[in-house]
Nucleic acid binder design. Structure first.
Lengths: 226, 226
DNA sequence: TTTCCCGTGTCACACTCGTGTCACATCGAT
DNA sequence: ATCGATGTGACACGAGTGTGACACGGGAAA
């Protein structure tokens, strides 16, 4: 498995050096895509899913910020900005746009590479932390997909948020009131029994995993490992 | 159950970016309240109970330290300071005032968010005085789970609340009347003897720990360590 | 716009299970 | 030994929950 990195830099020698470094150092870990102007970069962002981006800020065609924004609107892959010495102020703008780290020119390739690895690892972790699971049920909060035994199932909005709440508090008994306050939030002018109905529909859709939702009479519901 | 976070920051774009990040990333986990000047922040601290605060130090109206002090006089919710690059010295003052963590501008929102989650979890765990125990019996009021010798057991609602009362007053003799008033609350038009029955059923379910509930003839019942 | 469909809240009914009560057995104190 | 207090088993009622059906409303499609 290799990770796709986009490197955008308008100085040809530097671009080549960076690309070579990632190709050689990683020994196959990286699939390197490069661009030397803003327009090209934007096109490549649109057409690919990158695991990491390294963006020069000063570019012909479109600034690194523009590329960052375009990338953010698409996903949340880690982004490192490359900025010229003395323009650290622009970094602030970079963080507002949603970058994760930066290096100041001139920089060492080693240092940049170390940051890259770090970000990649952290991104991977945070992706994992988007996944809630319990027994044969798994739910990805980012993609909002729910799987039972690795088979994707489709559930409705209310059921989804109910399931998220159950997963975030697995093994705990959740009272109807608590569920109402979390899942129904504003429109609390509903019967307690809507929770029953929502649980029923969720159970129906969970199929073989329906049994993982246990009823605790007189108190509420509880999601168990099995 | 959502957590209330106060974000105080005077740069409008950054404030908005932070708020959005918490709203989107948390998918309902966070209830975000924002303020852009010290006076507003102080008012909001006074009028709310927050689970987390993120405070810029340099603010118009009142400094982050002032807000921190006001919050500390009220409760002990986790506080993260945001400070500008180069003014790390002020961090020291921040820790004196009682902050729990800090980030230096420019910072990555992901990093800030990770710190937030960490602090929140730690705060939540320290609240785990939710656990009542006596001898081999332990009961978690949050998850409503009961264990005997670390083995989970299931009991009914009445028995559960009876056990909570016994645990909260372990070693004390509890009269039938006292138990009735606490556990039966409104429907007091019942015989004293229902307590006997409830105690019996609780003993049955407690299994090996049944002996911890002692009968005190003529007075009531008592939960002992062994 | 109208029409249809899907998501969701509510009600009615059936049924399970928790719970209160009683009767009787047993225990313990005087 | 006697009597009040408590343990125990059985039973019936009702609260709590599962389930099917229906109505309402908003969004998509025509």
């Amino acid at each position: 498995m290799s990770y796709k990195v986009l490197i955008v830099e308008d100085l040809p020698e530097l671009l080549e050096a960076m690309g070579d470094f990632y190709r050689e150092k990683g020994a196959g870990l990286w699939e390197v895509v490069t661009a030397s102007d803003g327009k090209d970069a934007l096109a490549k962002v649109a057409g690919n899913d990158f695991d990491l981006m390294i963006l020069d800020i000063m570019l012909p065609g479109a600034s690194g910020f523009d590329i960052c924004k375009a990338a953010r609107s698409k996903g949340d892959c880690p982004i490192i900005f490359v900025t010229a010495l003395g323009s650290e102020n622009s970094i602030l703008k970079g963080y507002e746009t949603g970058c994760d780290d930066y290096v100041v020119k001139p920089f060492s390739l080693k240092q940049l590479y170390a940051k890259s690895l770090g970000l990649l690892m952290r991104a991977k972790e945070s992706q994992d932390s988007d996944i809630l699971s319990c027994g044969s049920i798994s739910l990805n909060k980012r993609t909002m997909l729910v799987k039972v035994n690795d088979r994707e199932i489709s559930i409705n909005a209310k059921e989804y948020f109910l399931l998220v709440y159950l997963l975030e508090n697995k093994n705990s008994v959740l009272t109807r009131r608590a569920i109402l306050e979390r899942v129904w939030k504003d429109d609390l002018d509903v019967t307690d029994r809507v929770v029953d109905t929502a649980i029923r529909r969720l159970r129906d859709n969970l199929g073989e995993a329906a049994g993982q939702i246990k009823t605790v009479i007189g108190r509420g519901y509880r999601l168990t490992e099995e």
